[in-house]
Design a protein around this nucleic acid. Structure first.
Lengths: 135, 135
DNA sequence: TCTTGACTTAGAGCGCGCTCTAAGTTGTAA
DNA sequence: TTACAACTTAGAGCGCGCTCTAAGTCAAGA
């Protein structure tokens, strides 16, 4: 028995809305989904995996256009393996850079936060309002 | 001699466009800038520092609305120090979470990339096209 | 059979963060 | 004085990634 999901079940399962699932199909991020005789979409477990993968790519900040390229390459078959790998490697480099950037700014935030803590201490302990140019 | 910058000089200096500088002022991210007698904006070094700080906050992904709150608190003076610290701490937590998320997905990407490399090896060494469900 | 709710499509609308346009004013160098 | 670039404002437009609406079809239970 072949289990399939309605669009709402698929939405519940993946955490995307039915609107978004249709949108992804419309823009070619998901290949045309099987239909029941009524015309209603019927999603397979394979579709679930693909959508989960799309979600992972999105949450790394990959733009939709690039995901479209990736999907297009995938559906062209085995001869695009190298181009897919290179696409992922370029994206990997961007993700790395973003992590480094965020890590740097984390230290900036920590510095600010500690500075504020000091100022608060001075206020409560010495009752002399701080006048420095705190941003 | 008090050095000031025209809007274009400020744009060159900070890497924002003149349009964006006016926009930031309009939405209250920058306090009304000093004007020459002609009405042209004249930016101070203090303005430069503030804009640089705004850029850092933005690049950590802080939404404009939150930066507006922060700026508003700052301009209210010393009694908002604790609220500013708490705002930054909330943001810090989000940045941390984003770093962790990206780090996780980095390993996913690495896994995919290595998988592709294997497939490419198989193709070139054994000349037997791989048929697995590679995403 | 009737009702209700889930589904379908095409296309409009939205929130974000800019980005640009239009129409007019000012500053400067030839 | 004339040319031309840089500035001013109010407000429209845009790219992204959804998100929703309208109008209609379909399915399943009372």
């Amino acid at each position: 028995m072949e289990e399939t999901l309605s669009i709402q079940e698929m939405a519940d399962r993946t955490g995307l809305t039915a609107h978004t699932l249709r949108y992804y199909e419309r823009i070619g991020l998901i290949q045309p989904v099987d239909r029941a005789s009524s015309g209603h979409r019927r999603y397979s477990e394979e579709d679930v995996s693909w959508v989960e993968f799309l979600k992972r790519l999105r949450s790394t900040g990959m733009p939709i256009r690039e995901m479209q390229s990736y999907a297009g390459l995938l559906w062209q078959g085995d001869q695009t393996v190298e181009r897919r790998r290179k696409l992922l490697e370029r994206h990997r480099a961007r993700v790395m850079q973003k992590i480094q950037e965020l890590t740097e700014y984390l230290t900036v935030l920590d510095w600010k936060i500690n500075h504020y803590k000091e100022v608060e201490c001075m206020e409560s302990n010495l009752e002399t309002p701080a006048k420095e140019a705190v941003q």
